[in-house]
């Protein structure tokens, strides 16, 4: 049913479900949300299925008008939700009457917001997923004038309203995060100094970042001048990579692979961001953030991910 009219958008505003599985061997990225935790929480508050379609608002803002009564939830960080003179909190579902105008405005402290609707947005399924992948021509960006449809809510709207997700208990969004990583399969291609520089340095997100990857810039320090040095200049054959893979090209400045990352890549991978910490990195702002990496063991990473997923176990009746 017709739900929202798009009045204005800037930046990159797309539909995202939980991602496109099964086509990476054909060169199709996984896609899905940049911040999986915020995406999942929006659906959880609205009693939607885990892979329901949510609007990702990145690097800009969006304004909508409700075509009928509905319940919305906005998650993420670095944004505020404004309805005329009122401000709605993020991470709380709210009731919107037909005709009301809702604006998702960029402030500071993050890059990506997620707007969910009770019932989930409707979008065309391509290769088994409704996630937009612009470079591959799968779906298209949301534009002013678009009329957005949604499915039937799981329960009556009043019962889905004013639900709060206790985000601070699970995810500590910050512009100076310590991001946990697991050693990568090619860590031995780097010099001992290079590995020390990687773990001992601070980084900020470069201005050239997108859904495909986050280029990081080493912040100046005595050891950072050479970047992350490699012991061998021999080429690595292209091989599969995944969300959070940290590739280091010859210039010594790392690139972290994000949602629209190619399925394969040819630079050595020094480490891999753990799934539990990907949202923290996704929300780091260009030029502002101060990022550090810390190595942990695989078992601990998987425990962290399991713990985070328990946040969604029992949707409240």
């Amino acid at each position: 049913m017709t739900m929202l009219e798009v009045l204005d958008v800037s930046g990159l505003v797309t539909f995202q479900d939980s991602g496109r599985r099964g086509w990476q061997s054909y060169g199709v990225p996984l896609s899905g949300p940049m911040d999986w935790f915020a995406h999942r929480a929006a659906n959880s508050m609205l009693n939607n299925s885990t892979d329901a379609v949510v609007i990702e608002i990145g690097l800009g803002e969006a304004m909508f008008r409700a075509k009928r009564d509905c319940v919305l939830a906005v998650t993420g960080t670095g944004f505020e939700v404004v309805n005329y003179i009122w401000t709605f909190p993020l991470w709380t579902s709210f009731y919107v009457r037909a005709g009301w105008r809702v604006q998702v405005k960029k402030i500071s402290g993050g890059n990506w917001a997620y707007l969910g609707v009770a019932g989930g947005f409707e979008a065309q399924s391509m290769l088994g997923s409704k996630s937009t992948y612009l470079r591959g021509g799968l779906g298209s960006a949301i534009r002013a004038g678009d009329i957005l449809e949604a499915g039937k809510p799981a329960r009556e709207l009043a019962k889905l309203t004013a639900r709060n997700f206790p985000v601070e208990k699970f995810m500590n969004y910050s512009q100076s995060p310590v991001i946990e990583v697991i050693a990568g399969p090619q860590q031995d291609r780097f010099t001992e100094e290079g590995v020390q520089t990687f773990y001992g340095s601070e980084y900020t997100l470069s201005k050239s970042f997108d859904r495909m990857g986050y280029r990081l810039e080493l912040l100046p320090s005595p050891s950072s001048a050479k970047g992350i040095a490699q012991a061998t200049s021999a080429d690595l054959l292209s091989e599969g990579m995944t969300l959070g893979s940290i590739q280091v090209p010859d210039n010594g400045q790392p690139i972290v692979m994000m949602a629209d990352s190619p399925a394969t890549g040819g630079y050595p991978k020094i480490a891999n961001v753990i799934r539990a910490d990907l949202p923290l990195l996704a929300q780091c702002e260009a030029g502002v953030s101060k990022i550090q990496f810390r190595e942990i063991m695989l078992e601990e990473a998987q425990e962290n991910f399991q713990k985070l997923n328990k946040a969604f176990k029992t949707p409240k009746g």
């Binding site: 599985r21 099964g22 086509w23 990476q24 061997s25 054959l237 292209s238 091989e239 599969g240 990579m241 995944t242 399925a263 394969t264 799934r275 695989l298 078992e299 990473a301 998987q302 991910f305 399991q306 997923n309």
Partner: peptide, 22 residues
């Protein structure tokens, strides 16, 4: 096991850590 990605000399296997350990 979610999907596999063959390359020149390697095969990457994506799995769900909520279902399987390494």
């Amino acid at each position: 096991i979610l999907e596999t990605v063959p390359a020149y000399s390697t095969l990457l296997i994506h799995y769900d850590p909520l279902t399987l350990t390494f």
